[in-house]
Design a protein around this nucleic acid. Structure first.
Lengths: 209, 209
DNA sequence: ACCTGAACACCGTTCAAGT
DNA sequence: ACCTGAACACCGTTCAAGT
């Protein structure tokens, strides 16, 4: 057994960091509550309650790691959704739908992703999370830019050349909707067709008429 | 000193409930952190650490009370903003601006308002919060409905008669944007003119062209 | 009715050790 | 290096009393 083994094999040691992230993710999925205790994560991972401190200086750092992984998943889901469609219109609907579906299908995980920022409070957002979030936003932004380039989407008047406001708006709409649905504040019944309908509404918001 | 004194005078007793809500609100504003401890609230109010249980069965209920009051404030800010403008266009921009300003000027309070829902997790949203939130949403919805009625806003295609999706979309946009800005996930620099610009972008999303 | 003090089972974090 | 057990200062909540 040389030490050159791939870090992917998880006997029990060597990848405690990954084990902790997975344990935390599992707890969140099972309890459907984004607030987990560090001690429970350690128990689940089979280590003492302060072994995690070797890998994460404080609880917030584990939270950030879980959140960042969540954003990577979200990004994958969006990329997957954007694969098939040809037109920017279809792509935007597909991506919007995938986004809402991702959030509403595992609300606790979605809340954690933004709750990590939330927990940070005054402090700056953990860079890990910020980058991961930006990466998933960029999938949406790319499609929006595509639509503008093909002259199908209307850039906002104030957006001279830049299209950041338009992309930000689109992100805000799907994010806000996801949150409102998760929080039970949307009065539209959450039918399976909702993501699709929201995707269409999103499209109508940017489409050139 | 008859007991028929108005409940508004706060010597020290009689209105502990209000004192607790105010103490919690003050702590959130000072720490800029929406997570306060029940014991600290009690200390601040000058009572023992479990006196609050006479008024709030559990911590979540105090959280909900603070959140509900926050929604009342938000509603007032929106109503105030909608007063002056005449056209639905101006009103929507004004309301959107006021909304974003409310959220970004006291992020901790805004996060708490939605964090109360968040904390509830699987359980249903505290009715108190749900109603207060709906009441403030309705200010926005009324202006949107006005615009549709005057044929200045375009109802979404799927919205046969109802305009709930359009209003929900508008709410989602301002809510999402507020959250993204608060969380530091918006890459647009938070200039004082941002609320105004966002209000205009919101308008462009619904306006008939 | 409303409030108290002591107690319970937790928590995040630290520290002096162990290997 | 990595992990442990004991300890510290908290927390939410409960309970038997006090007035």
């Amino acid at each position: 057994m040389s030490p050159s083994r791939k870090s992917g094999d998880s006997y029990h040691h060597g990848d405690l960091r990954r084990a902790l992230v997975e344990a935390a993710t599992a707890i969140v999925a099972e309890d459907q509550n984004w607030e987990f205790s560090l001690r429970e994560v350690a128990r689940r991972a089979g280590v003492s309650h302060n072994a995690p401190y070797r890998h994460f200086p404080e609880k917030l750092d584990l939270l950030a790691a879980v959140a960042a992984e969540g954003f990577h998943s979200l990004r994958s889901a969006m990329i997957e959704a954007a694969k098939a469609p040809k037109s920017p219109d279809d792509a935007l609907v597909a991506i919007g739908s995938a986004y809402i579906r991702f959030g509403t299908e595992n609300p606790a995980r979605y809340r954690l992703m933004f709750g990590a920022a939330l927990a940070a409070s005054k402090a700056a957002l953990p860079p890990l999370v910020g980058q991961a979030a930006a990466a998933s936003r960029d999938v949406l932004a790319a499609v929006v830019a595509d639509g503008v380039r093909q002259n199908r989407f209307a850039a906002a008047p104030g957006d001279d050349g830049e299209m950041s406001i338009l992309a930000l708006s689109a992100w805000a709409t799907v994010h806000g909707l996801t949150m409102l649905i998760i929080d039970g504040l949307s009065d539209v019944e959450p039918s399976p067709s909702l993501p699709e309908r929201v995707g269409r509404a999103l499209l109508d918001g940017v489409r050139k008429r």
